[in-house]
């Protein structure tokens, strides 16, 4: 466990140094990456630990984002209360849909969550009296804790990363504990899980609620950072990108999120440059990533490391051999 804390500390120190060195525009990018880290941790728990597919993570982000946007702008409640409201809303929503859709598995679950993402898209654009439609909600106040207002990028950068690190630690801890072990058992074999006394439905729904909380928090922080909420932030494309980045990063490793989050940040820019070819690349990625990268970049690195290790063993036959 200590090595994980050290690793996190190293990343934190690098990011802290960067906050003094980087220009504001780059810091903005890193804020988004922190928020993506937060969302992606949700995927680590739901996809990585529990082995369940979720194609509507942007829906939870939208619930958190619009939740806080609506009550802070329309009713003038403090931003912290707004964010809490958004997160609680996300958790409640996760509970409700979890009870309904989590009896489904694999493709069927994917389709059901895809439908939720589509409905979200339509509601954000169409329910104008609540969401403001395409023009969204503007004038969202910055986060204020006591007298401290997180107005400039530099301050928000610190806040976003501290929250992301806490979220990351929670997920790391969860993975080692009885709760995380139960989730991993469900991923392995649901029949085995119930044969050792794990209430599969309860654990799956709880995992979705945690994932929903992470995503809603990420969405809520995002709208306060931007000062506005637009349907485009939480589009179905965003959901696709999140799960793709999660798989690419290596969903079953908590370290994957640090690789996946930058992908999530830069991939849309890349797609923008591709113009009409975007959809082709999209489709290819969607087929190839699950086929060859199910264990992601972290998996790729591990495999490469193992191969190098094996070559070394061959060169030095007196070394430790792998027992067959």
């Amino acid at each position: 466990m200590r090595k994980h804390y050290v690793a996190l500390l190293v990343i934190a120190v690098i990011l802290a140094v960067l906050s003094f060195v980087l220009p504001i525009s780059e810091q903005r990018t890193l804020v988004f990456i922190a928020l993506f880290v937060l969302t992606l941790i949700g995927q680590v728990i739901f996809l990585g630990y529990t082995g369940q597919i979720l194609l509507c993570q942007a829906t939870f982000m939208a619930i958190g984002g619009y939740g806080t946007a609506i009550i802070t702008v329309k009713y003038g409640v403090p931003s912290i209360v707004g964010i809490l409201f958004g997160v609680v809303l996300g958790i409640i929503f996760a509970y409700i849909i979890g009870m309904i859709i989590l009896r489904l598995r694999t493709f069927y679950l994917a389709i059901a969550t895809l439908a939720i993402a589509l409905i979200t898209d339509a509601l954000l654009k169409g329910w104008i009296s609540l969401t403001g439609g395409y023009s969204g909600i503007t004038g969202i106040p910055p986060i204020a804790i006591g007298g401290l207002v997180f107005e400039n990028v530099n301050l928000f950068y610190g806040l976003a990363w501290i929250i992301a690190f806490i979220g990351w630690l929670f997920a790391l801890h969860l993975g080692r504990s009885r709760f995380g072990r139960a989730l991993k058992t469900i991923k392995g074999n649901e029949m085995v899980a119930s044969s050792v006394g794990i209430n599969v439905t309860k654990y799956k729904v709880t995992a979705l609620m945690i994932t929903g909380a992470y995503a809603a928090l990420s969405g809520a922080l995002m709208v306060h950072f931007m000062g506005l909420a637009l349907p485009g932030f939480f589009s179905i494309e965003e959901s696709f990108l999140i799960i793709m980045a999660a798989i690419l990063g290596g969903a079953s490793s908590v370290y994957g999120v640090f690789l996946a989050a930058p992908v999530l940040e830069y991939l849309p820019d890349l797609f923008l440059k591709l113009g009409d070819y975007k959809l082709i690349i999209y489709g290819l990625l969607f087929v190839l990533v699950p086929m060859y990268f199910m264990d992601g970049l972290v998996g790729l690195v591990t495999r490469l490391a193992r191969r190098v290790h094996k070559i070394r063993l061959k060169n030095y036959p007196s070394g430790k051999t792998i027992a067959g």
Binding site: M1, L169, L174, R178
Partner: peptide, 19 residues
Amino acid sequence: IMIGCHRTTRTGLFSSFLY
């Protein structure tokens, strides 16, 4: 083998988060 201990152990979600 450890997953077999689910029945006899107790720690919950929030204590796990905080380790």
